[in-house]
Design a binder for these strands. Structure first.
Lengths: 242, 242
DNA sequence: GTCGTTTCTATTGTCGACAATTCTGATTGG
DNA sequence: CCAATCAGAATTGTCGACAATAGAAACGAC
């Protein structure tokens, strides 16, 4: 007796065989983005069955993805009560910025010490080009470029652990950075800071580059509070487009 | 028709009702310790069913725990091939030490800036007492005290994110630290470094404390290589006691 | 004897089921 | 009107089942 074989690759009935994309990684990435963008409201309880239905999978891959996101600090967990969205508060942002500043300083110093002239020149060129096109970028795109600038330096440091930790911080502060990018867009002074950092790196001036980087990242508590205010407004107003 | 109700809290048939301990957290903690101590050999494939049988649970909690450990970098994962023990190599240890040095420097500086006199005095007293008892401690216990010293400072920094990241690094280098502790045990000079750091903190001498901390943590590539050699020997000889 | 192919076996990925626990809200007593 | 209590509903924790995939072994051609 033949039992009907389970429909493989469900839903993806388009002819193009580009790539099946395993559901596990896909689910993880999808939930990760939701958490990064606060598509869950702060401290909101996350319903596993609802999320599973929304993504057309069972609870198993959902739970595995959520567990991972717990250790990435994007999600909270209480035993027998389930998963919750992380909070959204000033202290965390200030503390993360402090750690980030230290790591990014180390990053530039190592990059200056280890990167080739060509690599540093490429960094300057790439950012110059990005700035020239800045007006044509959406805020999301500009945020991505901002993040990429810092990640490139972290990679040039030659220390993958450093880069990995910075990426972890980046995903956690992605949302606030989006807001900051829009704030600074009008001022437009801020993106010249990247150019200055890059030029100091080309000149192999480690102390100056580190100082510039620190000042670039350091955030006053007042600024953080204003950003959080703006962020909360977006979270509780903007997301009603479901 | 009654179906037999599933046996609750299996195995724990002892009369003492101290604490059931949920299997999920228990499994996670157990696997975590195994990974920390390299009870899995480097790059060894981890069989889910075997591990599940060993811990008397199904694969679900096993997989969830393993997923968490993946993002903690204690475990590796390849889709459709499963979970693997992390490698054990010099580069990673050197890179982690570099990051750790930076974070610990920041840690002492913040602690000096924020901790009360009482808290710092307590740190000194506790370590003095620990040193006095050092000879009665096993290497494992001594390693734990070493880790605790640094974690206490991280907590005094007042930045939980900093402390969390250092704890993450600590779990990854726990095994090599065990080896280093035994190495230094004969020299016995190394633990006076902790005292010096603590005294500099009491004196609120941030620059000196930071410098001492850096020198305490910094590790030469040669030292790392020798430690790795010793570690590999233990992993492939010692663990045959199953 | 070695390389490539095919068949068989072991392992992972995902699912649905059900017990244990928590949450909801209705009811009762003060 | 408020607090405590207690059913009933919703949700999580864990399990066993099975298909899809990877790995190993047997086979055969050269």
């Amino acid at each position: 007796m033949l039992r009907p074989t389970r429909q493989t690759n469900q839903g993806n009935s388009a002819a193009l065989p580009s790539k099946p994309i395993k559901t596990g990684p896909r689910v993880y990435e999808e939930i990760r983005r939701m958490a990064m963008d606060y598509r869950f409201k702060p401290n909101e309880r996350i319903n596993e069955v609802a999320l599973a239905a929304r993504l057309n999978v069972s609870r198993s891959p959902i739970r595995e993805a959520l567990q991972r996101l717990v250790t990435e600090e994007l999600i909270t967990f209480q035993t027998n009560r389930g998963f919750f969205c992380r909070g959204f508060d000033v202290d965390e942002i200030v503390n993360l910025s402090d750690v980030r500043a230290v790591l990014e300083e180390r990053s530039v110093r190592l990059a200056i010490q280890r990167a080739t002239d060509e690599e540093l020149a490429a960094l300057v060129d790439w950012w110059t080009l990005t700035m020239a096109r800045a007006d044509s970028f959406s805020s999301a795109e500009l945020t991505a470029r901002d993040e990429e600038f810092h990640i490139r330096i972290a990679r040039l440091s030659g220390n993958p652990e450093l880069a990995r930790m910075l990426e972890g911080i980046n995903t956690r502060i992605h949302f606030v950075r989006t807001i900051e990018v829009e704030k600074h867009r009008r001022l437009s002074t801020t993106y010249t800071e990247h150019s200055e950092i890059a030029r100091a790196m080309v000149a192999r001036d480690a102390d100056r580059a580190a100082r510039l980087m620190h000042d670039h990242i350091a955030i006053s508590v007042a600024d953080a509070m204003s950003t959080v205010r703006e962020g909360l407004a977006r979270i509780y107003i903007d997301v009603d487009q479901i």
